[in-house]
Amino acid sequence: MTILAGNPQTGLLFSPPLDILGGIVNVYNFWGLVLSPAYLLWGPSDVYARISLAALGVLAVWNVFTLGRFLRSRWVGLLAAVPIAVYPSFVLVESTVLRESAVLFLLTSVVRLAIGPSSLSQARRIALCGAGLIMLPLLRWELWILEALAISAAAVVYLDARTDGDVRDRLHTHWVGTSALSIAFLYGIWQVSKRAARYLSFLHSERAVGRTAYLASVTFRQPLRMFAFAPVAVVYFLFTPFPWMVGTAADVVVAAEALGNVAFTVAAVRGIRSLLAHQLDWRVSTGWVALGVWVITGSILFGLGTANVGTAVRHRQMFIWVVYLFGAVGIVEWFSSYLLDSKVLY
């Protein structure tokens, strides 16, 4: 079952041939299966589904606030949560039957369980995090790649922190083996990049339609061209529409949100410097490294595959909330002296 134009549709969950890079499960039919309880109830089924997803959006806002409060103070949590709660693009998406609301809820919940405060036992936290990490690629298959990269980065930081740098010392000692592994790793990256460049260039061209399309003539079917275009794609992905792209009143609202994203990104630089200057618990520092990798790699992957403002606005919600967290830390650092004098920082 899937939802097309507001109507439930049936279909197979598994569509052969199976391709781990292209997605094993038909995500649209799986999403329809998730929503099916609302359409089995008597009454306005679409309203039930929208209310349920709006509730998930509210919980996502609370998760972000809790993470910010745990990270530094309630002001950090409030500043990070406000854009998600009031930006029209977030509010409108979370009131529809699109997957974005559920994805955002799962992301923020996994991070909160992993590094935030919780009254649950460690075993339950691990089980719930695992369930969330499994559900995310079922809703949007590309996320398994980002999960693998973020978890790998977190594992490296974790091992280094728990062994007091012993891993680095061993790598320096066995430099021949380390060099061989690095060459093999880079070769693997290159081979994957060739396939990714062809797929993302095709996806970019397919999405470069409509009034809000941008960079429609750009193609990057070779890895080097893809790498060169990636910074531009990320900027457009996170900060569109630019002023010269505004054509309607609705565009003005979204452009104002984009300016807010720019401000939070600038503040995030200060926030990251502040976090690095503090001695954080190894679990928290590992989590923030994973989130940093998530934002960077996710913005590159989805930025390369996006070529219109509407898609960018929906997809960047999976990543921009982390920028809001880091940016909120930077904003509070800038105004900390005033807040302390006013006795409202904590």
Rank of each mutant, 00 (worst) to 15 (best):
G303P: 10
V269T: 05
T240V: 07
V309F: 05
S299Q: 01
T265E: 08
T286R: 13
Q317K: 15
S274E: 09
I296Q: 03
Q279A: 07
V284W: 13
T265Y: 08
W321T: 10
S337C: 11
G327R: 00
G327L: 02
F326Q: 01
V322M: 06
T297A: 10
A258W: 02
G287D: 07
T306H: 04
L291R: 01
F335Q: 07
V284G: 13
R316L: 03
V322E: 03
A328H: 00
G330C: 07
G330P: 06
V269R: 05
Y236F: 11
T265W: 08
G305Y: 08
W282V: 12
V322W: 06
G271F: 05
V289M: 05
L325A: 00
D341W: 15
A312H: 03
D281E: 10
G287Y: 11
Y236M: 07
G247H: 11
A312C: 06
L280N: 11
S337N: 13
W288A: 01
G330L: 05
A277Q: 14
A307F: 08
A328C: 02
V322Q: 03
D281P: 05
F237G: 08
V332P: 04
I320G: 06
V266T: 06
G330D: 04
D281Y: 03
I272R: 02
I272D: 04
V266H: 01
S337G: 13
S336I: 03
G330K: 11
V293L: 05
F264T: 10
G260R: 14
G298K: 14
R283V: 09
A255L: 07
A256M: 12
N261M: 02
L275R: 10
L280W: 08
S336M: 00
V284E: 12
L276D: 01
A250R: 14
D341Q: 14
G247K: 06
E257T: 15
V313F: 02
M318L: 09
W282A: 09
T306Y: 06
V253W: 14
Q317H: 15
T265L: 09
A307P: 08
S274G: 10
G247F: 02
W321E: 02
F239T: 10
M245Y: 04
K343A: 09
V289P: 04
G292L: 09
A307M: 04
G260W: 12
W294H: 08
L340V: 14
F237V: 02
T306I: 04
E257M: 12
T311H: 13
N308G: 00
F319Q: 01
M318H: 09
R270H: 07
V322F: 12
T311K: 10
L301Q: 02
P241C: 02
L276Q: 04
A267P: 14
V252E: 07
L340C: 10
L238K: 08
I320R: 02
V323D: 11
T306Q: 01
A250Y: 12
L301S: 07
D251C: 12
G260N: 11
A307E: 04
L291C: 08
F242Y: 14
F326Y: 15
L259I: 15
H278D: 13
V329P: 14
D251P: 14
A255K: 10
N261G: 06
V289G: 02
T248M: 05
I272E: 03
G310Y: 07
V252P: 00
A268V: 05
E257G: 15
D341P: 03
E333S: 13
A290V: 01
I300R: 09
F242T: 14
T297F: 12
G327H: 01
N261K: 08
F239A: 05
A250E: 09
T240A: 04
I320S: 07
L280Y: 07
G287M: 09
